[in-house]
Design a protein around this nucleic acid. Structure first.
Lengths: 131, 131
DNA sequence: ATGGGTGCAAATCCTTTGCATCTGC
DNA sequence: GCAGATGCAAAGGATTTGCACCCAT
């Protein structure tokens, strides 16, 4: 599957797979530039879109802009309301199957997935509060 | 509380309170223009930000751009993966208090709120599929 | 007269596009 | 030599900012 990717695309994918942060396109560009100094930002955008389209990565919207994530398994997110930090939740937040189906029914949605977002202050912002 | 708002701000808030759609800043601008033809887009942005900051409205990120919502009660959203439509879920999707707290604990977040997003095809996109 | 709010235009930021060039086959 | 991928620069769209002006106090 991945062997059809060219060297630039592979560098992008590898960078994403090697980080737990949720980089923006610009972050990816800056990181990949180190091994591919001649790559352009437009190419990074093109690669990110095609990787997302082929399902190898996920595009996360709504956390101060668009971010990319190589973890394509369904998972939940924690967002700091103070600094905007975005963390993966390392466990599935359990929800009632029933009310999920009920929500789909009342909205007319043919359910394919869901995500829970939890909001609050992250550890470092709580630290900062104390001082 | 709201009496401290000037007439432009009140027009924006009233428009938002009177719609179930989730308008973008541009939508708000175009709507409010009808009663306030001399208002500028920059002013609409300024008002939206200050209303959001004072908690009178909510700013929703991550649905093909930023949208505004006068419904400040905690609620969940349904998103169409085909057309991007965004709907409020008219009931609370139940989730396990325990796993919510567990998620907060493992991420170090001081929990203040949460949101469930359900994804799938909306009714009209399902219709469209049939033809 | 003073300060905040406003319109307008310019600036910024992020992303996409056009196009000529390069690359691998 | 060709098709697709790329870099670069320009274009686009959304949002923010600078600034002069206006209005209510």
């Amino acid at each position: 599957m991945e062997q059809i990717l060219n060297t630039n695309a592979r560098a992008v994918l590898e960078y994403l797979r090697g980080t737990y942060s949720h980089p923006t396109a610009m972050d990816v560009y800056e990181a990949v530039r180190q091994s591919k100094p001649r790559i352009g930002l437009a190419t990074v955008y093109r690669i990110l879109h095609s990787l997302a389209e082929s399902g190898l990565i996920r595009e996360l919207e709504g956390f101060e802009g668009v971010r990319y994530d190589a973890n394509t398994n369904r998972h939940d997110h924690a967002i700091c309301t103070a600094c905007g930090a975005l963390l993966d939740v390392p466990l599935d937040i359990a929800l009632s199957e029933e009310s999920l189906l009920e929500a789909a029914r009342t909205t007319g949605l043919k359910l394919s997935s869901h995500e829970v977002r939890i909001y609050g202050r992250c550890a470092s912002c709580q630290e900062r509060d104390k001082s």
